[in-house]
């Protein structure tokens, strides 16, 4: 289990909601903090790294836990 500062559960949400909710959540956090995002949308597997690299956040790790996709994103500066 990785360490994280905050968590967001996007289970059941479809494109583009996981990205929009993640963006809004990470905006409330401090630089360098890690957000754990849970999604059931297979599209998020490509969308999350695309979004993160575009806006300067770091996708530290992504993994599958059962039928869920979990992303750890460190907020960039």
């Amino acid at each position: 289990m990785k360490e994280y500062n905050d968590e967001l559960d996007c289970s059941g949400m479809n494109c583009p909601l996981p990205i929009l909710k993640t963006k809004m959540k990470i905006d409330t956090m401090k630089d360098g903090e890690v957000l754990r995002v849970i999604s059931t949308d297979p599209g998020a597997c490509n969308d999350m790294p695309a979004w993160a690299s575009r806006v300067g956040h770091v996708l530290v790790e992504s993994c599958e836990e059962g039928d869920k996709f979990v992303f750890y994103i460190r907020k960039g500066e």
Binding site: C15, P16, I19, L20, V55
Partner: peptide
């Protein structure tokens, strides 16, 4: 609306 909101989320 999907593309606009996502683009805005991508700065």
């Amino acid at each position: 609306f999907i593309l606009a909101s996502t683009a805005a989320a991508m700065d």
